[in-house]
Every structure is written in C-alpha cells, then in structure tokens.
Design a protein around this nucleic acid. Sequence first.
DNA 1: CCTTCAGGTATACGGCGTATACCGCTGTCC
DNA 2: GGACAGCGGTATACGCCGTATACCTGAAGG
Lengths: 222, 222
Amino acid sequence: MSSRKAPLDRDRVLDAAITLADRVGLEGLSMRRLAETVGVTPMALYKHVSSREDLIDTMVERIVSAFRVADGDTDWKREVRARILAARAVTTRHTWWRTAVETRTMAGPAVLSHMNALMEAMFRGGFSPDLVHHAMHALSTRMWGFTRDVMPTPTLPADPEARDAALSAYAEAYPAIVRMAATASHAGAACDEDAEFLFALDILLDGFERLHERGWRSAPMA
Amino acid sequence: MSSRKAPLDRDRVLDAAITLADRVGLEGLSMRRLAETVGVTPMALYKHVSSREDLIDTMVERIVSAFRVADGDTDWKREVRARILAARAVTTRHTWWRTAVETRTMAGPAVLSHMNALMEAMFRGGFSPDLVHHAMHALSTRMWGFTRDVMPTPTLPADPEARDAALSAYAEAYPAIVRMAATASHAGAACDEDAEFLFALDILLDGFERLHERGWRSAPMA
DNA sequence: CCTTCAGGTATACGGCGTATACCGCTGTCC
DNA sequence: GGACAGCGGTATACGCCGTATACCTGAAGG
C-alpha cells in the first residue's frame, strides 16, 4: 500500500465531470456534487481547475477532440457532410454539450480545428472567402451536429382518447399546427431527428453549391 | 392622496422584468434584484408570479405578442419571410430572449400562434403536412429571427499591429480560418448580421420551394 | 534533518430561489 | 357600525450555489 489514495489529477476531474453531466445535465453539475463523486472536498477541485467555467471550457474541448472522421474525401460537400455527421455522432451522446458550447465565449484549439477543417474543405471546393464566411454562419450550430428545437409543437398525450381531445381543443385556435400534427409521421411518436437534421443540412449544402456555381458575390461592401 | 402607493400588479412586474433583463441579461435577472427595482420585498413578487420560471415564461410570451406584420401577402414565401423578419425586429432588441426561449419547455399561446401562422402560409402555398413539418424543423431558431453563432471565429484585436501578430500566430494552425478572416468583409469589424441571417434564410426558403415544386416526399415511413 | 510545496481540508461569505408565517389595510356584509 | 375575509405586502429562514482564504499534512529534495 504505497499510495494511500490515487492522487486525482485534471484528467480524472474531467472524466468525472463529463459522466456526471451525462447523468444530471449541465445545471446539475455543481462543484460540490462533482467533488462528492470523486470523493474529495469541493475546494480540492480548484487545485485542478480554476473555476467552473474553466472546467466547462475544457469539457467542451474534450468532446470536440473525440470527433473522428474517415478522411480521404475529395469532394467538398461529402467531406463537410461527413465531418458534421461525425460531430453529430459524438455530441448527441452528450446532451449537455449543446448548452455548454452555446455558452462558451472563447473557442479553444479543438473547436478551431473543427471549424478550420470545414472551411478548408470549402476552400478546396473553390469557394470564395466571402462564401465560406456566409456558409459558416448559415450552418450555425448545425456544424456541431445539432439544431435547437425551440419549443416544438406541444407533445400530445400518448393515450388516443386524450390525444383526440387535445387535438380538437387546439383545432380552432391553431388549425395549421393540428393539421401538421395529425400527419402520421408526427402523431404521438417523436419524429426522426436524424432525418430532420439531414433534411436541413442538405438544403443548406445544396444551396451553397448552387450559389458557388453561379459565382455568388455578397452585396457590395458598405 | 387617496392611494398611498401604486399597488403593483402582474403587468408592472413583467414590464420591470423585461427592462431589467434588457439591461443585465437573463442571469442578471434575479428575484431579489427585480424586487429592488420595483421597490418591494423579494417575496412580494410571488403574489404576482408563481416562480421565476413562470415569470420568464410570461416574458417570452409578451415579446412574441409584440410581433407585428403587415398582412395581405398572398405568396407563401414572402409571407413567411415577412413574419420571420417581424420576429427578428423584435427579438434582436431583447438579447436575453434567445436564451429565454431556448430554455422554455412549454409553448404558450403567442408562441403557438406564430408557429401556426408560418405553417398556415406554407399550407396555403400547397405544401404537404410532411414538408411543413420538415421545414419548421429546418428553420429551427431562425423562425424567431435569430441564429446562434456558436463561438464565431475569435475576434481579432482592433489594433492593426496586434492583429497582424495574432493572424500570423494562427496562420499555420488554422490556415482556412485566417484566410477567411483576412477577407475585407470580416476583418476587425463585426460582420453584417442581418445579411448573414438573410443569406441563410433565403437558402432555406428557396430550398423548400424547390423541393415543393419537385413534389418532395419524405422517406417511406418506418 | 530541515525545507518546500503539491494537494488536500475547514470555514466562511455573499449570492440565489422560495417555503412559511405573519401583519395591516380595505372592502363587504350583517 | 362592527366583524371579518382576504389581498398585498413583510420578515425570517433553509438549503443550495461558486469560491476566497487560511490552514494542514505528508512526501520529495537539498
């Protein structure tokens, strides 16, 4: 018994933080609670991270570093698509990550690398810097593999009877919503998020391509 | 002097909350601080709102109710565009609103009305329920007039000398980012957010239109 | 052997949302 | 006119939070 206790380092703190956040979300990730899971006093954490924000910064980077893409794609569109889906594969497994990345104020190296790779692909496709710039903004959070669903239409009760009642209650106030919700693909069940994601992503990528082919320029500089 | 004090009602609380949030953001909006601005004890607020979350719910609705669109548009695309820009005109004046709406779990009547109006326009344009559904997801937060810029490329120092130094430091690590950033439209100055927003919005709307014309169907139901 | 110091602890401060109990004024009804 | 209900405010307190500060302890290095 040479070492009385495994000595706890930055990596262990990070691992614990990520698994804790996976379980309880980002708001549930408190320093006290994290300390508990690693069997240590809250203040001990501050020997390894300088603040909760610093911790989250690093957690975000850690997740981005896990993106893995089979390279070798020469077509810009296929590469961008593949990188974004690689991001999606990782980030959807850590739901807290969406909130975390949106609240960061500084981009770390891993984050910059991912963005750089996307831009590089587009440049290789012959995009102008201007178009690359607009495309990146247009992708927005989608370049991380997710989209915010801002309050999707209210989830209907699963029970068929209650569902019909709710539907007819809304029917006159929000006919279009009900008409859409009555569609088979949406009724009751959660819709296919992957399909929705790809639908929008491909519209954007196709749009970039078309504009590029047409020699798109941004409006004359102010 | 019949009334010793103006009696404070739900509306006054809401108005104060919104102007306070405009000033200090959503995190800065604490019940104690809000109470102070209306000259009252923190707990007094709970006679008018049931919780902080309830307060924010109502604030979100209040903002949405302020959307104003000159109706009379018959073309679906023009109407959707106009409604979204109407939303943007309001929501960009209340930066806290983005965070607020993203953290809501239930859609209130005003929110539902806005979504209903967008869907209604698309239905009038002949969209299938399925396409409406996908389009709404694709719009995502853009239907509220904003997009999350997830960690835009790091802002460069304004000072030209420091800027060049920063650029060359990044140059080898992130060549594509630097290449884009060196573009006149982005260098130093903040880019034109309205233009970026419209760029992406129009790609999406045009994409919807094209798919509709081609009689798009979603993948065969599972 | 003494020193240094990395890595842990103990305590405390000021913030937060809000549960609970209380209190005074005002309008209503007998 | 007097009892009383109840609305809108207050006072206090609890349990969270992030973290500043001070302290301790054991091992490594001269």
